[in-house]
Design a protein around this nucleic acid. Structure first.
Length: 815
DNA sequence: GAGTTTGAAACT
DNA sequence: CAGTTTCAAACTC
């Protein structure tokens, strides 16, 4: 904690020292959806399910995530071919936004896999590659680069050509200017630029169309638009370009990112004296950006600019031979404001959620810079964050308008929770929830970011990481809470906090009021949540602060030694909420369970004294409560339900379980695997934890607990049969807990152990095995069978490796 | 806002 | 492992 932040920052080598960096931990935590000790942290960090940040270890995950994203999109894209007129006779090809860079940055909204549902992404990509020999050199380069990054030559190869097609197709309804622009871009095989534009255009198109498939498209569109808005706002801020038409805005937006990055980089360079191989590139980019074409020449001018920029980017991309690791390092570097242009480009490639997270961090970093005196960039980024926040608010109704909304951001789990709870499309839950993304973005804006940073730092602490970046950020966060969240910070009294919590405004925000525990015991909500106390806390003699990192870490270890799952999410999601199941039965309280069960004697499990109730889950057989009346599900009911499901489930369960489960060892193993999987998933899903641990479920504020407040992120999908049987879950509680301990909580070795076995098992026997397969093998698995659900699972899986320590989103098992 | 209740966490 | 104490959140007035 004492290390001078700047010094550390400057000295840190993004690539070589990534592991030492808190950012690295952070990234790791992001990767999967995992809760556990870091879980909370991880959860907070994990903005989007599908967008995990790749870690060095998870380098393959990066690609996986990308892939998963594709899958997700595929699953969601339900437009019929009829809706799209393909050109060039490439109907068979899945139209993907080519450049990962673009996709990462802008979250390409539309991927149409209709014709290829049965084909894996890898296959599709391969087809595209093979069929698109005529693609421009740039596209080829880009493809190679991407491939290289993904770590799998077979994956993530997205020819620009496809992008072009996509643009034309989807842009049909777009405003003429935009359409033209896009078309031109596509013709020029300017994948990166076109991608963004395309996304934008698609969004517009979709909005205007109002055709069927609204739900999915709306989600996507909203997500894309959100992203676009986010970027655009940033870009607009950075470039301060006004009165430009949509096309220009798009171009500006896209261009603005590099520009911003480059600018910040320059500042960094000045301060840190880092070598920037891309100085010329920066200049070129800047020139390109700064020289907007006239409207008349817009097409050509834009095209030219695009070309230039594209070439620059492509060249930069080619320069990235580091692969995922390098990318990770770059991410880290970004977080530290040491990002180089190519780094930025790289980061864009891997973006997705990571981008959002990074933005958050970057925002914090910018704050740091601001403190350091590098104003223009810093302030600008801050503004950007603010803009983003506002945009998000606009976009996100439920969060809108409340200054306190930022509070939600802080909690890691919030994202996931939000995802889980907000996502109405069960299919999308695991993958990418627009809402979640929004939340994550929000986080970046204010305190959320701070907390987020804190979380990262915490992770870093847990890992004994020596880098100070996290601390620095954290400190800034804690020390400079005023930025963007003055409202929240100002509210220091516990009662106010409670009120806010009650009001549901502060979900995810933890404000302790510890007097004697020094915030170093699980009594402290902040500490228990794995986050540092903030100014808004009313604690006394608090040691749960970055400056006491060592103490915090030691204490945590001690507690964990005593109880490995002490920091694990208290509520574990079971697989009940299978989307398709649809019946209330699925939504029964059993969908999630408290890891240990409650011990209520007087509250009848009807008040928040009850952790089950607080977590929005029903009591289970593991509870020792008396007179349970838990609105989410009584213990007795749980048992009954389990029995019912056992019978009732013969249809589903029998189908699945009977297939192998009962009886034969293999089946047994499968079941175990399935359970493990679920378990892992649950813990992984910070959402649960967040929900429960935070205890600030929306319904709580609202008053009535939703029947299934907690949405299972991935578990449900994982279970091909639909949902886990409550009874089974209950019965397996001990085992579950056991797994849970291993998985979420802690230390890599254990996790690895667990991970291996479950994964292997799953692969071998379980119907879900394909889904379960490790990230790097995801594509390798029969792509043909990937359905949306499967895709979901896959998407989830990739993340696990990173996190177990930190964030739980993805369970170790996936490793 | 103060005081009480409650049950988890910590301790023995 | 069970019983007790400590603690802070949740709740009530």
């Amino acid at each position: 904690m004492d290390t001078p932040p700047e010094k550390t920052r400057a000295s840190v080598n993004p690539v070589s020292k990534i592991e030492d960096s808190p950012v690295f931990d952070y990234l790791n935590s992001l990767s999967p959806i995992k809760p556990v000790k870091s879980v909370h942290y991880a959860q907070l960090i994990h903005p989007l399910n599908d967008n995990s940040i790749p870690s060095v270890f998870a380098s393959p995950h990066v690609s996986v995530q990308k892939e998963s994203r594709f899958f997700t999109r595929c699953a969601f894209s339900e437009l019929s071919k009829s809706d799209i007129s393909l050109e060039n006779g490439d109907e068979g090809n899945v139209s993907l936004v080519a450049s990962l860079v673009a996709s990462d940055v802008f979250e390409l909204p539309v991927f149409t896999f209709e014709g290829k549902e049965n084909s894996g992404v890898g296959d599709i990509l391969q087809e595209n590659i093979s069929t698109n020999e005529h693609s421009s050199a740039f596209s080829t380069k880009l493809t190679e680069t991407l491939r290289y990054e993904s770590g799998s030559p077979d994956h993530n190869t997205l020819p620009l050509y496809d992008v072009k097609m996509e643009s034309r197709i989807d842009l049909g309804g777009i405003p003429l200017s935009s359409a033209r622009f896009i078309g031109d871009v596509s013709n020029g095989s300017h994948g990166l630029l076109s991608s963004e534009i395309q996304s934008h255009g698609i969004s517009n198109l979709e909005l205007s169309k109002g055709q069927g498939n609204h739900c999915d498209w709306d989600n996507r569109i909203s997500d894309a638009s959100e992203l676009l808005i986010f970027d655009s706002s940033t870009g607009s801020e950075a470039c301060r370009v006004q009165d430009q038409n949509l096309v220009d805005q798009n171009a500006e937006c896209f261009a603005s990112l590099p520009l911003i990055l480059s600018e910040s980089q320059e500042n960094i360079d000045e301060s840190s004296q880092k070598t920037q191989p891309c100085g010329s590139t920066l200049a070129l980019v800047k020139n390109t950006i700064n020289n907007p074409p006239t409207n008349h020449d817009k097409e050509t001018g834009e095209l030219d600019r695009m070309d230039q920029l594209t070439h620059v980017l492509s060249s930069v991309c080619q320069d990235n031979d580091e692969g995922i690791v390098d990318a990770t390092g770059k991410l880290v570097d970004e977080a530290m404001n040491s990002t180089t242009v190519d780094d930025k480009v790289e980061s864009q490639h891997q973006r997705g959620m990571r981008r959002r997270c990074l933005f958050v961090e970057m925002g914090a970093a910018h704050k740091n810079n601001l403190h350091n005196g590098s104003d223009s960039d810093s302030s600008r980024s801050v503004k950007d964050d603010a803009n983003v926040t506002s945009d998000d608010r606009q976009l996100v109704p439920f969060k809108a308008g409340n200054g306190s909304s930022t509070c939600m951001l802080p909690s890691i789990g919030l994202h996931l929770n939000a995802l889980a709870t907000t996502s109405k499309d069960s299919r999308m839950v695991l993958q990418e929830n627009p809402d979640s993304g929004r939340q994550s973005i929000k986080m970046s804006s204010s305190i959320g970011s701070l907390r987020f940073l804190k979380v990262a730092q915490t992770l870093h602490i847990q890992r004994d990481s020596r880098s100070i970046v996290g601390d620095e950020v954290m400190q800034d966060a804690s020390c400079t809470p005023a930025i963007g969240t003055g409202e929240e910070l100002n509210r220091s009294t516990p009662k106010r906090k409670r009120r806010k919590l009650d009001a549901g405004e502060n979900e995810g925000c933890k404000h302790c009021n510890c007097k004697k525990s020094k915030c170093l015991k699980l009594y402290c909500e902040c500490f228990a949540a794995g986050i540092y106390c903030v100014d808004s806390c009313s604690c006394q003699n608090c040691f749960n602060k970055p400056m006491h990192e060592d103490t915090v870490l030691a204490t945590r270890k001690q507690i964990e030694s005593r109880n490995p799952i002490a920091f694990a999410p208290k509520v574990i999601k079971s697989s009940d909420t299978y989307p398709d199941s649809g019946d209330d039965a699925n939504k029964t309280p059993a969908s999630a369970r408290h890891k240990k069960g409650c011990n209520c004697k007087k509250s009848s499990c009807l008040k928040k004294y009850c952790e089950c109730y607080q977590g929005g889950v029903g009591c289970s057989i593991s509870c020792r409560c008396d007179g349970c009346k838990n609105a989410f599900g009584r213990k007795e009911d749980t048992v009954l339900v389990g029995a019912n499901e056992a019978e009732h489930g013969e249809e589903e369960l029998d189908t699945c379980e009977k297939n192998g489960k009962v009886g034969s060892p293999e089946n047994d193993g499968i079941q175990k695997d399935g359970q493990q999987y679920h378990e892992g998933v649950l813990p992984i899903t910070p959402s649960f934890q967040v929900c429960s641990s935070s205890g600030k479920l929306p319904f709580l504020s609202g008053g009535k607990p939703p029947r299934s407040s907690v949405v299972s992120i991935g578990s449900s999908k994982l279970n091909s049969c639909g949902m886990l049987r409550k009874s089974k879950i209950l019965l397996s509680a001990p085992k579950f807990e056991k797994h849970f301990q291993i998985v979420p909580e802690d230390e890599t070795p254990e996790i690895l152990k667990l991970n291996t076995s479950p994964i292997s098992t799953v692969k071998s026997s379980s119907p879900n095995s394909k889904r379960v397969s490790p990230p790097h093998t995801d594509f390798g698995l029969s792509p043909s069978r990937r359905s949306g659900r499967k895709l979901v699972l896959q998407s989830i899986r990739p993340f696990p490796s990173l996190s177990y320590d930190a964030i739980d989103q993805s369970p170790p098992r996936y490793q």
